[in-house]
Write a protein that binds this DNA or RNA. Structure first.
Lengths: 157, 157
DNA sequence: AGCATCTTGATGACATGTCAACAAGATGGT
DNA sequence: ACCATCTTGTTGACATGTCATCAAGATGCT
C-alpha cells in the first residue's frame, strides 16, 4: 500500500458535507413523502419510473437496470407493492421466463397525488437553496462521476 | 395542492445525476471497503468517529448524534460490532443509565488498516474527478443544505 | 423529601436489503 | 435435434434499519 494522499481541509469539508447532506436530505424527503402520500422513497421511485413509460409497464429486468437495483430486491419490493395494489405482474409474451410489471390505476393515482408535493420538497430542501451556477456544477460533476463509475469515460454532458 | 413548479431541464438533470451518483458511489465504496478491509460503511463510520476522539470512547448518545443515527440503530449495530471484537461497552461513571462505547485494540487496528484504502477510493471515485472549483462548490452547497435542514423544527415552511 | 416527567439505552417485532441457490426458459455450437 | 451454458425471476436465510415499548435513572417542581 502506497502512502495515501489524505484529503486536504477543503476536500474533507466537501466530503463530509456531502455525506451529511445525503443523510439529512434522505430523512427529510422520506419523512414528508410518507406523511403526505403514504409512500416510501423506493415506492415512489418504482411508481415514477413506471409512470414515465409509454404503457406504464416494464420488464422486470429493465426496471431493475434503470433503478440500479438487484433483481432480487426489485422482486421482493414488487411483491409488497403488489399486495398493496400499486402494481401487478403479467407474463411476458416474448420470453417465457420474463415478467412484466404494470402500474395499476391505484398506482397511477398514488404517484400523481405524490409527485407535486415531492417535487416541492426537493425544491424547498435542495434546488431552491442553490445558485444557478451550483445547479450547473452539480449537474456536471455528478454525471462525470456516474460516467466514471459506469465505465464510460470521456463523454462530457 | 398548489400548482407545483416542476424542475426545469437542468434542475432535473442535476437531481437525477445526484441520485444516480449517490447510489453508484455508495455501492462502489462499500464494495471496496468490504473486499479490502472486511468492513461495512456503517462499521467504518463508527470506528472512524471513535478513533477521532481523545480517548477513543464516546457516550452512546453522543456518538448517535454525531452520526445522525437513532439510538436504537446504534445500539443494535454496536451489539454486532461488539460480537466481532471491534468495540466494547462500559458503564458511564457520571450517569447510571449511560453507556460508553470504547474502541478496542482490534478496532483500532481495523480502522487504521482500512483508512488509507478508503480515502484512496474516495479520491479515485469522487474527489480527483472534480475541479478545485467544483470541490469548493460542493463544500458550499452541501453545508448550506445541511444548515437549512438542521436549522428548523418539524413544521412545514 | 415526594412525585411526576424526561432521558438513556436495550429490546422485540417487523420492514427492508443482500446473498446464494434454484427452476424454467432462452441461446448457441455442433 | 442435442446439450451445455447463460439469463430471468423467485425464494429462503440472514443482515440491517425502523418503530414502539420498556426499565432504570436523572431532573425539576412543590
Amino acid at each position: 500500500m502506497e502512502q495515501p494522499r489524505w484529503l486536504d481541509e477543503r476536500e474533507q469539508r466537501a466530503w463530509r458535507g456531502y455525506r451529511r447532506m445525503r443523510r439529512l436530505l434522505d430523512l427529510e424527503l422520506a419523512r414528508e413523502l410518507m406523511r403526505d402520500a403514504g409512500l416510501s422513497e423506493p415506492d415512489y421511485d418504482v411508481l415514477s419510473d413506471l409512470s414515465e413509460t409509454p404503457d406504464q409497464r416494464l420488464r422486470l429486468s429493465e426496471l431493475a437496470d434503470r433503478m440500479l437495483w438487484s433483481r432480487s430486491r426489485l422482486s421482493h419490493h414488487l411483491t409488497r407493492m403488489q399486495q398493496r395494489g400499486l402494481v401487478t405482474r403479467e407474463e411476458c409474451a416474448t420470453d417465457g421466463r420474463g415478467a412484466v410489471v404494470v402500474l395499476t390505476a391505484e398506482g397511477r393515482r398514488a404517484i400523481e397525488a405524490a409527485a407535486p408535493g415531492h417535487v416541492a420538497a426537493v425544491r424547498r430542501n435542495l434546488i431552491d437553496l442553490l445558485t444557478p451556477d451550483e445547479v450547473a456544477a452539480l449537474d456536471a460533476l455528478t454525471h462525470r462521476v456516474v460516467d466514471h463509475l459506469t465505465g464510460r469515460n470521456g463523454a462530457r454532458g
